[in-house]
């Protein structure tokens, strides 16, 4: 693994050309059919989801989707979901459970969107509900942090049996800028904050928050995307096979214990 600073990884994690959720979905899976809407308010384009095949096995895939160009980023709200995004994700996850499909989620967000409409429609409730329901789903869940995993907006779709991070992805309570603005009263100290926050894959593996790191080439995943995707696919296939050996009850209990020991 390359030795670069936490801030360098933040920069890599945010690069516009870095592969996004749909890139991984299209590379790793076949026959992807995107499904839309939360059946309640609307269709949030900052979260994509649907059914696909992993080799032969039908699975449900969900991802926080950023854009690569300005126009797509506007459409995707820069990967910042509104409550209906989380409710769509939850609907698809419940559907996966009904049809006994494993779930794979891709996390890449600067955070849940802090807008007026989001508050009016219950952003907090949407995130809380998603985590609570994920804890009880009786199918294997694998969560992959591919870019920025920031705050509750990331965790909302990251309550799984295995948590994987790409080498240059970051996962944190808040963006380094937000953290610096709260604790150092100066958002320009983001670099310093990033070093102290323990947000890199390596740090989080040591803290036992994540299970696996997928290596990236120098310069980031886009430099050799097919190899990164191939390694990730291999890991997902292997872990789903392992997780399918457990009974439904064991699966849910193991997931409970996984989060139960965090910070204990």
């Amino acid at each position: 693994m390359s030795q670069i600073s936490a801030w360098d990884r933040v920069t890599l994690a945010r690069m516009p050309e870095r592969p996004k959720a749909l890139d991984y979905i299209n590379e790793i899976f076949t026959d992807f059919i995107e499904l839309h809407g939360d059946r309640n308010f609307g269709d949030d384009k900052s979260i994509v989801g649907g059914i696909a095949r992993l080799n032969d096995m039908p699975v449900t895939v969900i991802g926080e989707q950023k854009g690569k160009k300005a126009k797509e980023n506007m459409e995707r709200n820069f990967g910042m979901p509104n409550p209906e995004g989380y409710r769509k994700a939850l609907r698809l996850m419940k559907q996966a459970e009904k049809f006994n499909r494993p779930i794979i989620t891709f996390i890449d967000t600067p955070g849940a969107y802090p807008g007026m409409g989001a508050e009016e429609r219950g952003q907090g409730e949407a995130i809380a509900r998603s985590m609570m329901e994920m804890a009880n789903l009786e199918v294997p869940i694998i969560c992959v942090v591919i870019g920025e995993g920031s705050s509750g907006g990331a965790l909302a779709i990251a309550v799984g049996d295995k948590i994987v991070m790409l080498e240059n992805a970051v996962y944190s309570i808040l963006s380094p800028e937000g953290f610096a603005s709260i604790l150092y009263k100066d958002s320009s100290k983001a670099k310093e904050a990033a070093e102290n926050m323990k947000i890199t894959a390596e740090d989080l593996k040591k803290l036992n928050i994540i299970d696996k790191i997928i290596d990236e080439p120098d310069g980031g995943a886009q430099e050799d995307f097919s190899t990164v995707a191939k390694d990730l696919k291999q890991y997902i296939v292997k872990e789903i096979k392992e997780l399918q050996k457990f009974s439904k009850e064991e699966l849910v209990e193991k997931r409970y214990e996984k989060f139960r020991r965090m910070g204990n």
């Binding site: 965790l155 309550v159 323990k198 928050i209």
Partner: peptide, 9 residues
Amino acid sequence: GIVSLMQMA
């Protein structure tokens, strides 16, 4: 940090 975030889960 992240340990606080995980308390939500």
